[in-house]
Design a protein around this nucleic acid. Structure first.
Length: 523
RNA sequence: CGCGGGGUGGAGCAAUAGGUAGCUUGCCGGGCUCAUAACCCGGAGGUUGGAGGUUCGAGUCCUUCCCCCGCAACCA
């Protein structure tokens, strides 16, 4: 009893978050990309024995939202409600297993934001001052001096006029040195070249204090002790990561997860806020810092033409509906190079699905099970002795056994595309193994013992590969285990060659239907 | 000289601390027949953006130029 409790307490925790998405327009494939990456990582960690907390949500305040709502003749809340429902629906069809969905309009979040603001003010990290800048009357927009283009409005190039507004500042400058050390540590911000970018662009020029409230914005959290001010995005949106864990509330999640391994997955455009402002706020609050902020690249769409004229073929809902959830997940996880931008095209998407999911994985599963049924009937089909083993067998088995550690290594670096590459290398090797061993010849020659070994080895490749593919393509892998007539693994303990797996009554179904790419591209 | 990333066979990408330029996809040819026109093998295709330089030897280091992209207070 006692040991069990200790074991549980010692279980490693893993906390991963997506950014809070900004509900100002339609959700696109880019949002799906980040969320699917996090989902695959979260699932991998769960299967790998970690106690995982996966957070996503929406950042619903700000002037832009208020404006958009007005355009749509809705109240801000009505407007974001609709988009939030919509994104939850998207996560549902993408089979995203998040543990919590936080909205910055949630009561507990608002309360905590106010508490944080109040605390920082009382301890002197926030002070009242004046925010000076420029205002473009026709555009109704404020700009800092740095934003101006040749002294004029960056949007319309007209004259701007001075304006000054009372607001609250966060003493960001105070944390300059600590942030610099953090960024230079080489572990906090990945990929490493982004850290260089931050240091050269922002740290070197010196950090100035940060305006953290706006009097001109109404749609947001009110400064508790001065309600004509609204808390600006920094403290509002960034603090979600701790508020979701019960910070300033029951604190349960904080105790459990915040001190452990914490990973923020963010788009490269918000790396700055997560690696300079956010750690400074945490330092001010006396809280530990996240272990890693990963700034991923962007999924660039091939211009707007395609999306407008053809019913938006890059719309995640459309793609999932038409080609299945695995297709979209697999494409996003596999095709986009780690940390870099990738370009989406329908053709590349469809090609990827056909070559990997259909031809390599689906076909291997089908042909293997079909052979077992043809040559041995649907009777029980289990392990064997070692007397008939060949070099090919041993190499294949060794590769099966090496797979987990290879995949784990890449996943520890959050690199889903390389992890998938490793798995598909084994699956491809199995297709080649079939050609080398020629089971149909073995059958013809009546070499049943040898035939048995070959087919059994193939089934093991499929089983172990499917086990490791669980985090990435949950739908297809579930069907593979149904075809193999095995229980869905709850972890990776059996992700290795096993001599005694009991295979019987299997089904040789088509896992992924082949797509006629030419035809699809014409439509 | 604002900062950063990148320019490699048709396309998308690789090349540990300099040493015969690889992979995937596509194309052409062959093989096999268990399988979803799937699988396996072979081939064609690159003077690695341009020009100099260092070196026995450079995609990989140095100089210079050209081009694309991102960032510069919130588009994932």
């Amino acid at each position: 009893m006692k040991t069990k409790a200790i074991a549980k307490a010692n279980k490693n925790t893993f906390y991963i978050s997506t950014p809070l998405y900004y509900p100002s327009g339609a959700w696109h494939l880019g949002h799906s990309y980040t969320t699917v990456c996090c989902d695959a990582i979260a699932r991998f960690k769960r299967l790998n024995g970690y106690d995982v907390f996966y957070l996503t949500g929406t950042d619903e305040h700000g002037q832009k939202i208020a404006d958009k709502a007005k355009e749509n003749s809705k109240s801000p809340k009505e407007f974001v409600d609709g988009l939030t429902d919509n994104i939850k629906e998207l996560w549902s069809v993408l089979d995203i297993q998040y543990d919590k969905f936080i909205r910055t309009t949630d009561d507990y979040h608002i309360a905590s934001v106010q508490k944080i603001f109040d605390t920082l003010y009382k301890q002197g990290d926030i002070y009242k001052g004046n925010y000076a800048g420029k205002y473009c009357t026709p555009c109704e927009s404020f700009f800092s001096l740095a934003q101006l283009k040749e002294g004029k409005c960056p949007d319309c190039s007209r004259e701007v006029k001075d304006f000054e507004e009372e607001c609250y500042f966060f003493k960001l400058s105070k944390y300059q040195e600590k942030i610099e050390i953090l960024l230079k540590s080489g572990e906090f911000l990945l990929p490493d070249f982004r850290a260089k970018e931050m240091i050269n662009n922002f740290i070197k020029g010196g950090l100035s204090d940060l305006a953290v409230s706006r009097a001109s914005v109404d749609w947001g959290v009110k400064v508790p002790f001065d309600t004509k001010h609204t808390v600006y995005v920094w403290i509002d949106a960034l603090s979600n990561y701790i508020n979701a864990l019960g910070y300033n509330g029951d604190n349960k999640g904080m105790d459990k997860f915040w001190g452990g391994e914490v990973v923020h997955m963010v788009g490269k455009e918000i790396v700055r806020f997560h690696t300079i402002i956010w750690p400074a706020i945490l330092m001010a609050l006396g809280l530990p810092l996240p272990k890693t902020v990963f700034g991923h690249g962007w999924l660039l769409l091939e211009g707007d033409k395609m999306s407008k004229s053809k019913g938006n073929t890059a719309d995640p809902f459309y793609l999932i509906d038409k080609y299945g959830v695995d297709a979209v997940r697999y494409y996003l996880l596999r095709e986009i190079q780690f940390g870099n931008d990738g370009v989406y095209s329908l053709e590349a998407f469809l090609t990827r699905i056909n070559t990997d999911l259909v031809n390599t994985l689906g076909n291997l599963t089908k042909r293997t099970i079909a052979m077992v049924k043809q040559y041995f009937g649907n009777t029980q089909f289990i392990g064997y002795g070692s007397q008939l083993m060949t070099t090919e067998d041993n190499v294949l088995i060794e590769n099966i056994n090496l797979l987990f550690s290879k995949v784990e290594k890449h996943m520890n670096k959050l690199n889903c595309s390389l992890a998938l590459e490793e798995i598909f290398e084994l699956v491809s090797a199995a297709n080649k193994y079939i050609d080398v061993t020629m089971p149909w010849v073995l059958n013809k020659n009546g070499e049943k013992g040898r035939l048995h070994i070959v087919l059994y080895n193939l089934l093991e490749v499929i089983r172990v590969s499917a086990n490791l593919l669980l985090p990435f393509i949950p739908d297809g892998t579930k069907r593979i285990f149904e075809c193999l007539n095995l229980n869905l693994p709850a972890d990776f303990h059996d992700a290795k060659f096993n001599r005694d797996t009991k295979y019987e009554d299997m089904k040789d179904e088509i896992l992924y239907k082949r797509i006629d790419i030419k035809k699809e591209l014409e439509n």
